Amino acid sequence: MERRNETRDAVGAVAQAPEEVAYDRRWAQDLRGSVRCSAVLLALLLLIDAVAGTLSPPRAALWVALAVLLFLVLCPTRVAVGEGWLSARGLLGTRRVRTDRLVSVRCLDGVGQRLVLRDVSGARVEIDPRVLVTNPPLWHRLDEDARRSALRGSLVCGGTALRLVSERIDRETAMTVFKVSRLE
């Protein structure tokens, strides 16, 4: 009998331990980078306009709007994974998918790669695969739940995409080990 998430309290009754949730550890750093890039762009545009003598309130408002637009484009989604679920919180809300009931996992190529997860209820989440590469606990939880979905027979499309992400994570891990041990 497995009691993985159980603990005993003072009277000896069995209590459920809080569910472990893995978060994107680089999210705050990426958010600060987005803010910095937007602020630098705004400062440079205002400085260039001021030096040229063409700075006016409407132009300053235009530069502020441009910097805000850049921030919106660069702002990272916050990814969290728990047992049986994955959520991605962006500027426009939170999307959540049941990872233990996945139907498909696809990789979308383009300027920025995206991993699209869809569950049996039709919920859909898009995340950057780099989030999984840089956060092994996120990948481990997702991989475990995806395997559970495959065993249940609900995951009909996505084995190749998951294998590619797994190979990329293994490659990045090996490169990190080589760099740390100075064998690159």
Rank of each mutant, 00 (worst) to 15 (best):
G153E: 05
L86P: 01
V116H: 03
R148L: 10
G112M: 09
D100V: 12
L132C: 13
A174S: 10
S104M: 04
D170R: 14
S121N: 10
R147D: 02
T176P: 00
G153W: 09
L162W: 01
R124H: 07
V177R: 15
H140G: 02
G158R: 00
R118Y: 04
R101W: 09
K179Q: 02
T94V: 13
R148Q: 08
F178H: 11
R96V: 14
S166R: 14
R168C: 08
R130G: 15
S87L: 08
R148K: 11
D145W: 01
V120I: 13
R130H: 13
R118M: 15
R182Q: 13
R98E: 06
A88F: 07
A150F: 00
C107R: 07
N135D: 12
V111D: 04
L92N: 06
E126K: 10
S154I: 05
V133F: 06
L164R: 12
G122N: 04
V103R: 14
L115R: 04
V177K: 12
V180Y: 08
N135G: 13
R141V: 12
S149K: 01
Q113K: 13
T94G: 08
V103A: 05
A146S: 06
L164M: 14
D119A: 08
K179E: 01
L142Q: 02
E126M: 11
G90Y: 08
